[in-house]
Design a protein around this nucleic acid. Structure first.
Lengths: 341, 341
DNA sequence: TTGCGAACTGGAAGCGCTTCCAGTTTCTAC
DNA sequence: GTAGAAACTGGAAGCGCTTCCAGTTCGCAA
């Protein structure tokens, strides 16, 4: 057991020990050419002996690169991030960043302080880039994000305007798939539980829903707002059952609300799928373990996170990648089988 | 629309514009006394006009404080973080950090690179402190974390040894509550689906299970390992049904596995709770929306994250807070009512 | 007025690292 | 053997901020 030195060794000490200049030592550390093999070896040995780890802060100051990127969720609901969707996105982001030297800073901007912090990041050099998710319609940060010099990649489109870089699931297409499936299986009174109207994902899914119905010539059997939570889905379903008792299918803007809807239907003695078919959106772990297992629009959530990170890194490196729209597809399970209930 | 200056204004420019020294400007920015009101006002005006935002990197270098803390999940399964448990913890952590000036760096150390990164953080000044979760039994990082000078707070105890600072739910107590409830409601053949044996939380819950049974004098009706996932719980339940067809209750080490178990039971035509009662652990959103709604050991997950952050900040500020054990309690729902099925 | 502590001020020295640049050495080809 | 290019080297100047310290100024009681 050695007495640990109170302070971390610095590059100067490494250089001194290796008998080279600080410059040479720096070159070795950063794998820059123009260093003789002998010096390189000497420095490497000194690094090992001293247990030297470069101070990232000093490096960041000198290179004018923060060495980190921010994943920001701009929302007012503290619990939004608790949605498995974001956890899954985060895993994807992290798995890409793992291959780089960038750190991931998580910013849940659900308070005034949090928003202010995001604002500061967008106008300082604290990070090398930002991934921005869940931007609400009225959020001034969305505009700020498009004006700043800092690379900003949007995870999901904002409600208005089209940013230069984004990755977005095919929400409209996915919603259409859901409706087409329901119609094909004989449903004629299809209702929808939407998400917050100021979130683009919610709006796009509702649009897809409406479009698909228009194409088939069917009227909708009610469209009620939810909030992407189970409780919200349950409440919305209650309302639908009261207003539109004749419905025979419901499409929800995410899986969580579908679980809530299932609960409400169960309580009212409606059988799923015999009386009412249910289709969700996301296809996260919960969908498979619902009762009955949920038919749902699958979106590649983890891949979304991964591509988001990949795109941001590309922008940070000076490239200009194209926006990405990720495909969605339908996963058919018992809550809405193809054969009519 | 003004032409944005390519570079951020610096403290020097603020000082120049305000007609004061850089030192005085710095004092104003940091709310340090010994500045006349006049200068203070002048600086504040200059800050406003220039849109000055302090460069955090430079500040970090000068103060030798990184201004960030790390939440590290040391696990080998990439998907572990996707468990709603961690999302919920993260929300708690974030909500506390929101009140401070610290940034949250998320590190999902599930690859060799990730582990190496965590190692470097623990031995550099990259962050001011680390919250460490899900440390496996054989993880050398656990030991390293206890030796470093950097403040490290454990979220959940490691398998061996007791760190100086940690916050841990009362896993054993919670498990005992579950068993006592099942026994009280007349169950006599109680099985358990555990988590990974190298995670302390899993071990402690199993201990609590065994202890409670010993106290009542009942033998257990099978203990099979799961992995905290729904699929794992389902598979474990399958095994139990094959090996111990006579069981009338099962306790799972988390809610996810309970959902899997419910699915297996359903497939085998066992009614819940009439034939088999099910009790989970966590009481996250999914529990309420399971079918039937899940009786489960409630642990204050978000509070755990919040306390974790609070404790770390205290340590960073030089205090020596006491470890915390958070209480668990039973939430009774239909999957295991008090009245015997 | 004078004297003295308290309050204020700004120059200068870092924090630890990168990188420009000018100078030195080594190598290759004639 | 020599010119010229290529490779190497290290001094020095920052990156933008904090903070020590040695003054200078101010307010107020005597």
């Amino acid at each position: 057991m050695e007495t640990s030195p109170r302070r971390q060794p610095t590059l100067d000490e490494v250089a001194a020990r290796a008998g080279v200049s600080r410059t040479a030592a720096s070159r070795v550390i950063n794998n820059v050419p123009h260093v003789s093999a002998a010096k390189r070896a000497a420095v490497e040995r000194a690094v090992r002996e001293l247990g030297y780890v470069p101070n990232p802060t000093a490096r960041a100051l000198a290179t004018r690169r923060a060495g980190s990127v921010v994943l920001a969720v701009s929302s007012d609901e503290p619990g939004l991030f608790a949605d498995p969707f974001f956890a899954e996105v985060t895993v994807g982001v992290s798995s890409f960043l793992d291959q780089t030297d960038l750190e991931l800073v998580l910013l849940l901007a659900n308070t005034p302080r949090g928003k202010e912090r995001l604002r500061r990041i967008l106008s300082s050099q604290r990070a090398d880039g930002v991934m921005l998710m869940a931007v609400r319609g009225d959020d001034p940060l969305g505009r700020l994000a498009e004006q700043t010099d800092l690379p900003v990649v949007f995870g999901g489109l904002p409600l208005t305007g089209t940013p230069r870089w984004y990755v977005d699931p095919d929400n409209r297409g996915g919603a259409r798939l859901a409706v087409e499936h329901l119609v094909r299986s004989g449903r004629r009174n299809i209702a929808m539980i939407t998400g917050q109207v100021d979130l683009q994902a919610a709006v796009a899914r509702e649009q897809g829903f409406r479009e698909a119905l228009v194409l088939t010539g069917l009227p909708h059997a009610g469209i009620v707002p939810g909030d992407f939570t189970q409780a919200g889905g349950e409440a919305a379903m209650e309302r639908l059952l009261a207003d539109r008792p004749g419905l025979d299918a419901v499409f929800t803007a995410n899986d969580g609300m579908a679980l809530g809807a299932l609960r409400a239907l169960r309580r009212h003695g409606r059988r799923v799928p015999e009386d009412v078919a249910v289709v969700g959106f996301d296809d996260l772990a919960g969908a498979l373990y619902a009762d009955p297992p949920l038919t749902t629009v699958h979106q590649p959530v983890r891949a979304l996170g991964l591509e988001l990170a990949r795109m941001l890194v590309a922008v940070v490196e000076g490239q200009d990648p194209s926006p990405l729209v990720l495909p969605t597809r339908l996963t058919v399970r018992e809550s809405a089988p193809l054969t009519s209930g």
